[in-house]
Design a protein around this nucleic acid. Structure first.
Length: 215
DNA sequence: CAAGAGATCATCT
DNA sequence: GATGATCTCTTGA
């Protein structure tokens, strides 16, 4: 249990901005090129509303899974029960379970019937830090949500949110009002099986940010 | 610090 | 029956 003192006071201005619903990204944001969406998500706020408290993080790392031709994209294996959500309309969550332990959060992009999504790989904790620490059983800020599995654990995201509408009130992304930060593009992580697709620079990370999964 | 193994299960062959 | 869009811990230099 973290010591009773609050180590990271959350500014009122920040909280007010976060709950201004006019800043919630509309569906049209997601209904675009997956690569554009993956880049534009950097610096924006991922918000998870939960009875135990809300958690908010600034997105600092994403990966684009660009369609059925992308051998690293689950949709390359066709339309199945698992990939169904990716074939649906944009602006919904695609959450899947992997390695027997971890959930991965993706945001569905592009037009309906075109299967593509952005994997959210890391966020910088902004609000609800104590709740994240409890869920993660760890107090180290830098590793609270610096990876797709850790992020889902910190935010309490599991497959019950698969298919959730990002234009609803439970899970969504808010604009920060700031320009997209400077970022790097690198090959995606953990997709060595994907042939010529494995080296494409479809992983985007905020330059110099210490909350990414890998530098 | 880098590398490797183990944990554990939904999904598809 | 195999494998994976991961994480953590252990080992050894």
């Amino acid at each position: 249990m973290a010591a009773g003192s609050r180590q990271n006071p959350e500014s009122l201005a920040c909280i007010l901005a976060i709950y201004n619903s006019t800043l919630k990204l509309p569906r049209s944001f997601y209904e675009r090129s997956t690569i554009v969406v993956a880049k534009q998500l950097l610096g924006k706020y991922l918000v998870r509303q939960h009875p135990k408290g809300n958690t908010v993080g600034r997105i600092v790392e994403t990966e684009a899974y660009v369609g059925p031709q992308d051998l690293a994209c689950h949709a390359a294996k066709g339309r199945t029960a698992r990939t169904e959500v990716m074939f649906g309309p944009p602006g919904h969550a695609y959450v899947y379970f992997i390695y027997g332990f971890y959930n991965m959060l993706n945001l569905v992009t592009e037009a309906k019937d075109y299967p593509a999504a952005v994997l959210i790989r890391a966020v910088e904790p902004v609000q609800g830090i104590e709740l994240m620490q409890n869920r993660r059983r760890s107090s180290a800020l830098r590793s609270l949500a610096s990876g797709p599995g850790k992020l889902c654990q910190a935010f309490g995201i599991d497959r019950s949110l698969n298919g959730a509408d990002l234009c609803g009130g439970v899970l969504f992304v808010q604009d920060s009002g700031d320009p997209v930060p400077k970022f790097l593009a690198k090959p995606r992580i953990g997709v060595d099986y994907a042939g010529k697709w494995k080296d494409k620079p479809l992983r985007f990370l905020v330059r110099g940010n210490e909350f990414v999964s890998k530098f």
